[in-house]
Nucleic acid binder design. Structure first.
Lengths: 329, 329
DNA sequence: CTGTTAGCGCGTTCAG
DNA sequence: CTGAACGCGCTAACAG
């Protein structure tokens, strides 16, 4: 294994000089920079990130914290997009990524989690889809021991940033489009998980729309479950004009119920998962580009870890119309 | 941060003694073991795995190498199962996991990959779904620089194990069940990717079945693509009795095509993905328990990294009958 | 059975 | 602008 020592010898300089060049320190002459870089090239030197982490106490090791919902497996797709978006971007930026699931920290205290992450030399965390009920994570953020980026949770402090699309406006827009297209007045809105941040935001959106368009709005909580959305639809859809759902999965549940009831109502989803294409009908939905959100989160974390201040970052979205043929081509 | 030094001081012994106790070395008296363990408890000491890796050159760092097929997103589910199965088991066994995708190593040489992995102190790799065409990975395995476990690729040497279900027999069994149930004689078999190991094995299975049952077998390659399976079905299904597919996704494509053609043929899948439930019909398939396979791969890697010899490990499977109601309950 | 010592590969002072 | 020297937290011989 070729180490920094070999590079130094090869370039005819001291070890520390090599380190400085590698880490882009000032006060190194162009001439020595060139020599060092050439030696790096010739020896195919790749810095040992583990040693660097140990030495500097400030590694580029980052943790992904994902909420893998084992009950509704169908949303795997979103988690997968998050993972690949983050990992690809992190690779590009020279960060290494460790993936964790909420379930791993379930019965642990903040102190235990902190110690564990410290033992792993992890200094930055990206948390996806935290809700108000994730008490330990809330404390972890409050403790500010780590640099944190939250995806889909609107909290931030000096060590914590938040990255998300404007859920409120997105819900407003996609519902409006659907309602205008169908000239509906009586809306059944199937909301997500109580105490979920995104659920709240989307609720705000639909309520504002109801006010603006003077709609009759019936709200039920479907907990992001296809089955619950299905049951809600059976019970409440008959004398409603349109069904607006806070997720695609629930929209599928609603559609299925409608088909069994043998009545037609326009349905509107949220997320833009490809699974939609397998549900057999088409509907409006919000396309979120989860991989892109995740990549943005990595960038934001990198910014934080280099001394940036926590902040809010709002990303874009598009209204999509999804159907079978979009998928298989 | 509390280090091994603090523990040593607290327990009144030397640093190396603590290390020995922690790593379960022999030749330590019960008495000192007790003292050390007590100190560890009291100080809430968690060993720094980064330092251990640097020092011992034998870390518990493991890489997952996944083939994320961006074209057929629907199989995200399998990849996700692989990831979560591996990560959960690894956590349990005290290994830490870095996740990579094939695409990251696409244009790199074996030397580059080796250097990169070394720089990360990674000594074990699990590779999922490698095919004969993944030349670089083949070389990486042949070089035997790392301990490798292959999932769904039947290669092994002294540093490489393979873990997989008996694809040949599974294909035989599920197809046989479907064919017997429907008293079919003329089979359309839609195979997977040319040069894929699993494809080959499954092909062997169906061929053996055809011989044993004296069937008329027509084989076409669908490349694991829903669209291709669809097109093949359009062209060849009409005068066939049954359609056996080498994956659920292709089975869905076939079913869809049959529905559009307005003819009925039994269809048989492979994999047992939940997506099947969204396709609106039911069919026989093979349920593989991907998370379980992945967990077994982690165990196997752990075994290899502790001096075990590479070997073959064959896992079980079950024939499942999937339909919508299986999923949403 | 226990303690001492020397690194692992790198980042970081602080003299020169 | 450069380089010698120290330390990060831990493991691994080697003495005792």
């Amino acid at each position: 294994m070729v180490s920094i020592k070999d590079v130094a010898k090869h370039a005819g300089v001291a070890i520390s000089t090599v380190s400085k060049v590698l880490n882009h320190y000032p006060n190194v002459s162009e001439e020595t920079k060139r020599k060092v870089n050439q030696a790096v090239e010739e020896l195919n030197f790749v810095p040992n990130s583990v040693a660097a982490a140990l030495s500097s106490k400030q590694s580029g090791r980052v943790a992904l914290l994902l909420n893998l919902n084992t009950k509704t497996q169908a949303i795997d797709e979103i988690v997968m997009q998050y993972i690949s978006g983050a990992i690809n971007k992190a690779m590009e930026m020279g960060l290494d990524v460790i993936t964790f699931f909420f379930s791993m920290f379930e019965n642990k205290s903040v102190e235990e989690i902190t110690r564990y992450l410290n033992a792993q030399s992890i200094h930055g965390i990206i948390i996806y889809g935290m809700s108000k009920e994730d008490k330990v994570l809330q404390k972890l953020i409050a403790a500010q021991e780590f640099k944190v980026v939250l995806v889909d949770a609107p909290l931030y402090n000096s060590n914590t940033s938040t990255v998300w699309v404007n859920q409120e406006q997105a819900q407003y827009d996609v519902a409006q489009k659907t309602i205008v297209e169908n000239k509906s007045k009586k809306i059944l809105y199937i909301a997500g998980k109580k105490n979920g941040y995104v659920t709240e935001q989307r609720l705000k959106g639909i309520k504002r729309l109801a006010q603006d368009m003077d709609l009759n709005l019936l709200i039920k909580h479907g907990e992001f479950s296809e089955l619950q959305a299905r049951n809600i639809t059976f019970r409440f859809a008959r004398n409603r004009d349109v069904i607006v759902c806070a997720s695609d999965l629930m929209a599928i549940g609603a559609m299925r119920a409608l088909m069994e009831m043998d009545i037609f109502r326009p349905v509107c989803g949220f997320d833009g998962i490809t699974l939609m294409g397998y549900a057999g009908k088409q509907m409006n939905t919000i396309s979120q580009n989860f991989a892109g959100v995740s990549a943005a989160a990595v960038e934001e974390l990198h910014y934080l870890m280099n001394g940036g201040e926590g902040r809010e970052k709002i990303l874009g979205y598009t209204i999509a119309r999804m159907k079978y043929m979009d998928i298989i081509c």
